[in-house]
Amino acid sequence: MGVTTELNMRKGVKVVLNPPQKLFDSFQNWISNTERWNYRHAEYKLWCTAFEKFWLYMAVDESTEDVISVVSLALQRDSDGKKLFSIGNYYCVPEWRGKGISNKLFVQVMKHVGDENCTLFGAVEMSALYATRFNFSLMNEFWHNFADINMKDIVIPAMPKGFTCKKIEENDWEKLHEYDETICDLDRRKYMKTNLSLNGTVSRLVINETGKIVGFGAVKMAYAQELIMAPLYAENLDAAVALMSSILVSVPGLRAFESLITIYPDANNDVPRLLSLISNDRFESHKAYRHQYTQELMRFPQHKIFGTDEVSHSPC
């Protein structure tokens, strides 16, 4: 942690780079109550350690040590070594909005980006602003939907024939990474292994009758008694159903949670079918985010993405 003097903030406001967990927890409380952004307790540590570089700028009220505004930036590279920056957690406490503090934080992270490619998930109400003010003008033609299931409606589906699901063991990681590389052309082996092994996570891979990996996924036990289906990658609907059947039955205290959510590309028409199966057709969904880029649009096999890993620093 360090207090940065690079930003010309108003009197009484300091900016902290990579603050301690206690301040992040305070931020988590704000975003849960006002935006319903919920993370696992160890998510912040994951970002700090699993990416090539990671910055989290936090504006803090000097007199109270209360969080005012936050923005984060991560650096990853593709298989050719080309840089991809990602911006997440762009947030301001309601009473501090409109004072220019968040904008200064955003400008600061864009200084790290320079002329490199950068991406973010633009919320519906913010998408046009990101495109015009910060040049995130390259966008997917589709949106990502936010889906919500009340846990009282959760149904554990039958395992489809021809599929086997298993816990991820040490000798499975190489093949899992190889499968992940058919989804995402980023060097994220360290990130994905840490992500799927993190406390508060139930992860599985699915194998077909020939012994080939045809998907993997996880459910994360997050803040505010929420489960998050993220990521969920599969070759087809049956493989995705197999994963959710195996994962849901393995979540400790499943019925004690309040809800299960996921964020998914509405280009994948099989996702609503999966959600119907695991909710007895009782789920809510609405348009929420769009992926936006500054230099080059990245494309992914959306028909294999049933649950996006997360909307802070994962492009799929």
Rank of each mutant, 00 (worst) to 15 (best):
93 V>A: 13
93 V>P: 00
94 P>V: 07
94 P>A: 07
94 P>D: 14
97 R>C: 03
98 G>E: 10
98 G>Q: 12
100 G>H: 05
102 S>W: 02
102 S>Q: 12
103 N>V: 11
103 N>D: 15
104 K>I: 01
106 F>P: 00
107 V>G: 09
108 Q>S: 08
109 V>L: 05
110 M>V: 01
110 M>S: 03
110 M>E: 04
111 K>E: 15
111 K>L: 08
113 V>H: 07
114 G>K: 11
114 G>E: 12
115 D>E: 14
115 D>A: 08
118 C>N: 10
118 C>A: 15
119 T>G: 09
122 G>R: 09
123 A>W: 04
123 A>C: 11
124 V>Q: 13
124 V>H: 06
126 M>P: 00
126 M>L: 13
127 S>E: 13
127 S>W: 04
129 L>S: 14
130 Y>F: 13
130 Y>I: 04
132 T>W: 05
132 T>V: 12
133 R>C: 10
133 R>Y: 07
133 R>V: 13
136 F>R: 10
137 S>N: 15
138 L>M: 13
138 L>K: 15
139 M>E: 15
139 M>W: 01
139 M>A: 15
139 M>R: 15
140 N>H: 14
141 E>G: 15
141 E>M: 06
142 F>T: 08
142 F>K: 10
142 F>G: 07
143 W>A: 05
143 W>G: 00
145 N>I: 02
145 N>Y: 13
147 A>Y: 11
149 I>W: 02
151 M>D: 00
151 M>P: 02
152 K>C: 10
153 D>Y: 10
153 D>K: 06
155 V>D: 09
156 I>N: 07
157 P>F: 03
157 P>W: 04
160 P>W: 04
160 P>M: 04
162 G>K: 07
163 F>R: 01
164 T>W: 01
165 C>Q: 09
165 C>R: 09
165 C>T: 14
166 K>E: 14
167 K>W: 03
167 K>G: 12
168 I>W: 09
168 I>P: 05
169 E>Q: 11
170 E>Q: 14
171 N>W: 11
171 N>Y: 12
172 D>L: 01
173 W>T: 06
173 W>S: 06
175 K>S: 12
175 K>Q: 14
176 L>M: 13
177 H>I: 14
177 H>Y: 13
178 E>A: 09
178 E>L: 08
179 Y>K: 07
179 Y>Q: 09
180 D>S: 13
181 E>V: 02
181 E>I: 01
182 T>I: 02
183 I>W: 06
183 I>F: 05
184 C>Y: 02
187 D>E: 14
187 D>R: 11
187 D>S: 12
189 R>Q: 13
189 R>M: 08
192 M>S: 11
192 M>H: 09
193 K>C: 10
196 L>F: 09
197 S>F: 04
198 L>D: 13
198 L>Y: 03
199 N>I: 08
201 T>N: 14
203 S>G: 11
203 S>E: 12
203 S>H: 09
205 L>D: 04
205 L>N: 04
205 L>Y: 05
205 L>W: 08
207 I>L: 10
208 N>L: 05
209 E>T: 05
210 T>P: 00
214 V>M: 06
214 V>Q: 04
215 G>K: 02
218 A>P: 08
218 A>T: 08
219 V>S: 04
219 V>C: 11
219 V>Y: 03
219 V>G: 03
220 K>I: 02
220 K>Y: 03
220 K>C: 09
221 M>R: 12
222 A>N: 15
224 A>N: 13
